[in-house]
Computed example of a mutant assay.
Amino acid sequence: SLDGLGEFIFSRTRDAMVERIKAMPKGSWSNALVTDGYDEPVKLAATVTVRDAGVEVDFTGTDPMSRWGINCPIIYSKAYACYALKCVVAPDIPNNAASLAFFTVSSPVNILNAVRPAPVALRHIFGHMVPDLVLGAIAKAMPGKILAEGAGALWNIHISVRPVSGGSGRRAEVLMFNSGGMGARPGLDGLSATAFPSGVHTMPIEATEHTGPIVIWRKELRPDSGGDGEFRGGLGQVIEIEAIEGHEFDFSAMFDRVNHPAHGRNGGGPGVAGVVRLDDGTQMRPKGWQHVPAGRRLILQLPGGGGYGDPSKRSTEARANDRSKEYISENGK
């Protein structure tokens, strides 16, 4: 039987969590984020309360459910809230029933606690914003220890490619997972084009092109997109997509941080907002199904992460290194 070993692991985990939570400041701290939403901005709100018995997160104050599929079930919101807490309280302690038992998450019915039959297909958009929301509250309790806000939600895109009317060719459905920049950390720059909090990777562009009649002309870091600071926010990326000759495509945009970029921390500047457009300058919406005609290219400019600390303290050497890295990315050399 493994029961004895399991109890040993749980008891050690439980004792370690008690020790970590005991060392935290006690009280309640609140934070709010304004996100792009679908057809209007959406406010997310959280209050984090730390007691000797554990840590509570309450999403009271968050905007109501939406008629669009951007609602998030409470189980998804709870998972990402606990992830944020775990990163701060005990990143080195195993995730198990004993460690997670110290975290409780509650909410009235709202966009982070959607109930049936609310549409939830794009739950990841606001679910991936929950860690920044929770960390923003904890930053007030533990100044100088929490990273800046990042791009948050993945820039997922579903592409439906087909031959132009009357033509011949291939049809295909292509899904890409793309990441903006992480927020800068106390003592370190943010990671560029890196998924946080999801950790998901995407396929190489060669594999993506193999799945359907599309060409990805560019996939590179986006210069100057990270927020300024003593430690710079992670860079977003630029992705340029076109259907092959004789084809057109529709795409489902699942993006955020277009109208509300990531905030910096402790004096750091905001990350640069995302942009969705065609190569002729036509602006596209950050969410919903849209059309790209044959011969046009879709350009995605993913948002950067917020900076951390006073920008005047960033060293000359670090700034020179920033430009060198961006030049290499921009020119492919």
Rank of each mutant, 00 (worst) to 15 (best):
I328G: 14
V258E: 04
Q283W: 03
L100H: 12
D39T: 13
F102S: 00
P64G: 06
T282Y: 00
R218C: 07
N110M: 04
D322R: 12
H201V: 12
E317T: 10
V48C: 09
M284Y: 00
G27V: 06
R14S: 10
C87N: 10
R162A: 15
I125A: 05
D280R: 06
A81H: 05
F103D: 01
A318T: 09
H128L: 13
I214P: 03
K325F: 05
F251L: 07
D15K: 14
M284D: 01
D39I: 09
E56S: 15
A262I: 05
H124Q: 08
S168F: 12
A97I: 14
E19C: 05
D39Q: 08
A193H: 13
G61D: 06
P270T: 05
K287H: 06
A98V: 04
R51I: 04
G229I: 02
R265F: 06
H201Q: 12
G166T: 09
S315Q: 06
V258R: 08
R222A: 05
A90V: 07
D15S: 13
G187L: 00
H128R: 12
E56Q: 14
D3W: 03
V88T: 04
D92T: 11
E19I: 04
V164W: 09
W68K: 14
M254F: 08
A139E: 14
Y38A: 01
E7S: 11
I21G: 02
P108C: 03
V55R: 01
E209I: 05
E209N: 02
V200C: 09
H263S: 15
T62H: 03
I328W: 12
G167E: 11
A243Q: 05
E56K: 13
I299Q: 03
E248R: 03
A81D: 01
L188E: 14
E40H: 15
I138D: 03
A46C: 12
P94E: 08
P108T: 08
G305E: 03
Y83P: 04
K22I: 08
G6K: 15
D250R: 13
W217C: 09
M284R: 02
G167L: 12
K219D: 13
D279K: 00
Q301W: 09
W68T: 15
I157R: 01
E242A: 13
K86G: 08
A118C: 15
T208P: 07
F196E: 13
H247L: 06
H201T: 14
P303C: 08
S329M: 05
V174H: 07
R123M: 11
G236C: 03
P94M: 04
D250M: 14
D36C: 06
P186T: 02
I146R: 00
C87R: 14
L188F: 14
